[in-house]
């Protein structure tokens, strides 16, 4: 029987939960544990948009701009958040507080527009509500 720490993705998620990203020394250890060249490990990690090999901001802000949210004005929300944070898609603030990502469907299409702050999902947002949430991120 496989244990969940035999599963690569689960192991990597757990490392990321500890460090906030996958540091290089962990990639070395993963290579040993899963008996794979480091390039394969690195290649697998880089495939997934939620896995990071560099430090991210303390808060990862994900805004869905897929069709259903787009019809609910997610683009305006996105512009307001970009303006407030001074960040483009994929950028991290210099104080390492925020990383901003424009993402595809988050599965809350009936409650758009939506924004995820780390693990927490905020639905039916207005620009004002979104900025309030961001102001509380310290």
């Amino acid at each position: 029987m496989k244990k969940s720490n035999d599963i690569f993705l689960e192991t990597v998620h757990n490392i990321q939960q500890t460090y906030g990203y996958i540091p290089e020394r962990e990639i070395n250890q993963l290579a040993e544990k899963f008996d794979q060249p480091r390039a394969k490990i690195y290649g697998a990690i880089k495939f997934y948009s939620m896995l990071y090999t560099e430090p991210t901001g303390k808060y990862i802000i994900r805004i869905c701009d897929s069709l259903s949210c787009h019809l609910k004005d997610s683009h305006d929300l996105l512009l307001a958040v970009q303006d407030y944070l001074g960040l483009e898609d994929g950028e991290t603030s210099s104080d390492q507080l925020f990383t901003l990502e424009i993402v595809e469907c988050l599965g809350h299409c009936g409650e758009g527009p939506v924004m995820m702050v780390n693990d927490k999902m905020y639905t039916e947002l207005t620009k004002g509500k979104a900025l309030e949430i961001l102001q509380d991120c310290k």
Partner: peptide, 21 residues
């Protein structure tokens, strides 16, 4: 066993999902 995905739509395809696990 629970496996968490990591942000790849294509893993909804069964063979991609198997590779991912």
């Amino acid at each position: 066993t629970l496996v968490r995905g990591a942000g790849a739509y294509v893993c909804g395809d069964e063979t991609s999902l198997i590779n991912s696990i």
